[in-house]
Design a protein around this nucleic acid. Structure first.
Length: 467
RNA sequence: GGCCCGUUCGUCUAUCGGUUAGGACACCAGGUUUUCAACCUGGGAAGAGGGGUUCGACUCCCCUACGGGCUGCCA
């Protein structure tokens, strides 16, 4: 009898949504959504010093942009602190935890001492572990997990395989601080249990933690979830991702004009594979995604491949959706919004620009001709195509266009005849036309441009150029 | 220092003891073309090093090197 799958993404709101975190969220989302399960969101804000509402907002915003929708309301871990404390005290009653009166100073001194002795240092062993309650001072205390000192704790990880930890390497971690607040190690377990999380898919920086958390599950007699620790993402140089690699926040990617669908596809393939599948939409990804396809070594970010993947998605995007995403990009990048007329023109131009752009700035550049208004200012290279001879040809062409029917089929012979009449190839005619219509040398086909801006505008631009 | 994880073309990866080690991006060369792209064809390009196990290892084991993670009253 299989239960419903429940996954979660549990970021700590201490900064923007990191690209690595976004991938973790994506994997959880794909796994749950592909199996009719639930994908939950929990904000791990128990660190009151570093957590900010701005960071929480940025994380939600990043997830929304990527289209990773979660079920129900985002849970604040901090809001559940009473429940965490309750569990800590249950552990006390069960004898799987104990009150520790060692002060942070004493612990720091212990560590300093160990370090001074050089070489390897032992895990901190609290003197209060087996103390008689009668000897307990009337002082603040932390609650520590009474972890087994011998034997091993085994993690069955869906990605890493079976990983064994010696218990004497693990200390009695604090589950409830002396100020009564829970630590991460306790909070995650309690929340994951209470929220019914069945699969914990997270960065492998938590692999060691899984052993300690397993002890908490065992201490409480709770069912241990399926672990899946995925390798972190590295920068193009193979080093840990950091600011100097450029974009690390997902917001940066939106501001650089990458489409969300392309990001999802690229990020899915980063560290995960399903045979030769490279390009796919989210529905297909959900179909294929599984934990066994996740690799065990860290993957590097490759912006060229990201771009290529994004180009594929833009080319296949639906015009209206692309237009909407372009507007989101403009806002994120702090660029001026489209006017109503530009929206309209861009929408009409979409068919001939979307299959040649990898990002939205590129798409906008290709659509430049549709977004500008007269007089068209030619850039240096384009201006060269407009000499006396070509101006003459343009002015000769204008009247022919007035009565032509405005389709590529009708326009093509007119332009071809014009070129033939002057003994030049079509390319020689297209160049000045391009300058007149767009002021650029790199544009969509001249026919497409004429079709998009329409007869009147075409004629006006040609007249301007011929003048 | 200790513990844990990893290492196939430049990059992402397939392979789950027997393959001419496959695909994708990137790169190079052609083609197509009205420009830029897109697109099509072809090409070069890989099992970190050393020991084992085996009839046979990229695949299994050990060692080394390198990379990463954890080692907090952070998450």
């Amino acid at each position: 009898m299989s239960q419903q799958i429940v996954t979660r993404f549990a970021p700590s709101p201490t900064g923007y949504l990191h690209i690595g975190g976004a991938r973790t969220a994506l994997f959880n989302w794909l796994y749950a959504r592909g199996r009719g399960g639930k994908f939950l969101l929990r904000i791990e804000d128990t660190d009151r010093e570093r957590s900010t509402p701005e960071a929480t907002a940025a994380i939600l915003q990043g997830l929304r942009w990527l289209g990773l929708d979660w079920d129900g309301e985002a849970v604040s871990q901090f809001a559940r602190k009473d429940r965490h404390a309750e569990v800590a005290h249950q552990m006390l009653t069960r004898g799987t935890a104990y009150k520790c009166f060692s002060t942070p100073e004493e612990i720091a001194a212990f560590r300093a001492d160990q370090e001074a002795k050089g070489a390897s240092y032992a895990v901190f062993q609290s003197p209060w572990r087996d103390a008689d309650p009668a000897t307990h001072p009337d002082a603040p205390y932390a609650i520590r997990m009474k972890a087994p000192r011998t034997g091993e704790t085994v993690i069955e990880d869906a990605v890493q395989g079976r990983v064994t930890f010696r218990n004497d390497q693990l200390d009695d971690m604090i589950v409830l601080r002396s100020d009564g607040t829970p630590t991460y190690m306790l909070a995650v377990v309690v929340d994951d249990h209470d929220m019914g999380v069945t699969h914990v898919i997270r960065g492998d920086d938590h692999l060691n933690n899984a052993a300690r958390q397993t002890m908490v599950y065992q201490a409480m007699g709770w069912k241990i979830p399926v672990w899946a620790h995925i390798p972190l993402i590295h920068g193009p140089d193979g080093k840990k991702l950091s600011k100097r690699h450029g974009a690390t926040a997902v917001g940066d990617y939106q501001a650089q004009g990458y489409p969300a669908a392309g990001m999802r596809n690229y990020l899915t393939r980063l560290g995960w594979a399903h045979g030769d599948a490279e390009l796919f939409n989210s529905a297909q990804a959900m179909e294929m995604f599984d934990l066994s396809g996740i690799g065990r070594s860290p993957a590097r970010l490759d912006f060229k491949k990201l771009e290529s993947t994004c180009g594929w998605h833009i080319a296949r995007g639906e015009d209206a959706a692309l237009l909407q995403e372009v507007e989101g990009y403009l806002a994120a990048a702090g660029r001026p919004a489209l006017t109503g007329a530009q929206r309209d023109l861009l929408s009409r131009a979409m068919y001939c620009v979307k299959d040649r752009a990898k990002t939205f700035p590129e798409l906008l550049e290709k659509a430049h001709f549709a977004l500008i208004s007269r007089p068209i200012v030619a850039d240096e290279a384009a201006a060269k195509a407009l000499d006396t001879v070509s101006r003459g040809i343009l002015s000769e062409l204008t009247p022919r266009l007035r009565n032509a029917s405005w389709t590529k089929e009708a326009l093509e012979p007119i332009l071809n005849e014009m070129a033939a009449a002057h003994g030049i190839g079509f390319g020689k005619l297209a160049a000045p036309l391009r300058t007149a219509l767009a002021g650029r040398t790199a544009t969509p086909s001249v026919f497409d441009m004429m079709l998009v801006i329409g007869r009147d505008e075409t004629i006006l631009r040609l007249e301007d150029a011929a003048a």
